[in-house]
Design a protein around this nucleic acid. Structure first.
Lengths: 222, 222
DNA sequence: CTCACTTTGTGCTCTCGTTCACAAGCGCCT
DNA sequence: AGGCGCTTGTGAACGAGAGCACAAAGTGAG
């Protein structure tokens, strides 16, 4: 389930606070999830709760981590070291969850050779060697959209079986490869949509002339 | 619908290629969506297709943009200019979609006053003034987790009604405020989950001793 | 030991979104 | 002008997920 990482994060906070036991109600409140849904999620990993008491925090952290596959380390390679790649390389949330950034790769010769977050950026030419030599299972694509598919193909060919895509493009991959995408622009547009719906009841607010589509108002068929 | 931005992006690419007409099948292929689902999505905005022909690309771009509220500009403020905030401020995908980054804000005095992506970073103290003076509707939270809720509260109080949260924490907001979250660590964990399921059929691969939960293997109740 | 209280685990219902399949509509070719 | 092939729009079946509500199970006090 996609909610397990959320639970794990909340459990980590509770553990840091020294809480040893938590009820489904309490954990649900901390994660913004319905308590019945949470219990059902947890019951899918086994019966790890105690009726009348709740869940042991440390034990549940272990079980959820095991289910998610975080009890082993996963090698990660980041391709593309623009601003976003930099941010990802420096993000501490990866290492603390069992993800080891093994290599950084970029196509730009002026970036190759520089040091980022303690690693030397390597050339895109060596991508295949890096993946196979370091046993990397997960590839992070933080390139411009035009390069994303090619980088993705090469990662897959080299043996990577999971890809996290930050480029605004749809990646096509073989069935055995998992892709997840993060697109900040899409999230913002969804917010704009809801924002507009809120304003929708009011009179249409100052329709900007000069916006790119003004000329298409009704005819516009080529 | 949350898929409209995806369609819009694909339509933009088609328009750039000079394609004037596209079928639901074609657009579905470009976005990785079922064609019936796509047609149903588009039919919710009205009958903008022509049977036997397809959809006029430019006209559909306009209609989708209007539905999403992208025919007007939205003011955005980014709070927190660590690596991620930098990346967001420099990301071109925002401005091209009608999102105008109006201000950058940080709490760190050593960052305040520096220039990022053509804007001068301002002090967190001035957050309320900035939001009301510049008419900002959308706030982006790119702070550490501990600061996220407080920043969020202040944004809401100042009048922001949509929040995009990059911090790894659950934000609680009043009902009229929309929150969307982006958590890269969670995405990676989901990949790890699937990765493990693939390996699951094989014999358990070298269970690392020394991982933080090894001691909890079975007893571990406090 | 028993009883009252708490909290888990789960059967059932209901709602929402997805998908199939096809009728209606449009353009092109003859 | 008429028919043929293509594509949209949508009714209907299907399936997955969410939430309610309750039985089962454990704790602790008397």
């Amino acid at each position: 389930m996609a909610r397990l990482p959320l639970y794990l994060r909340a459990l980590g906070v509770l553990a840091d606070e020294g809480v040893s036991t938590v009820s489904s109600e309490g954990l649900a409140a901390a994660t913004g999830v319905n308590s019945a849904k949470l219990r059902k999620d947890l019951s899918h990993l086994g019966s790890y709760g105690t009726r009348g008491v709740g869940y042991d925090v440390d034990y549940l952290v272990f079980q959820v981590s095991r289910e998610l596959g975080l009890t082993q380390d996963w090698g990660v390679v980041i391709v593309g070291l623009g601003h976003l790649g930099h941010a990802l390389a420096n993000y501490g949330g990866f290492a603390s969850r069992g993800f080891a950034i093994k290599a950084l790769v970029d196509a730009d010769p002026t970036i190759v050779g520089t040091e980022v977050a303690g690693l030397t950026v390597q050339s895109l030419d060596r991508l295949e060697d890096i993946v196979s030599d370091l046993g990397v299972a997960i590839g992070v694509v933080a390139t411009p959209a035009v390069a994303a598919q090619e980088v993705c193909d090469r990662l897959v060919t080299a043996g990577v079986s999971s890809i996290l895509n930050f480029a605004p493009s749809v990646l096509v991959v073989p069935d055995h490869v998992e892709v997840r995408k993060v697109d900040m622009s899409i999230e913002l547009q969804i917010l704009a949509y809801h924002e507009q719906r809120k304003l929708g009841s009011q009179s249409s607010p100052a329709d900007h002339v000069g916006r790119p589509f003004a000329h298409l108002a009704r005819a516009g068929r080529r």
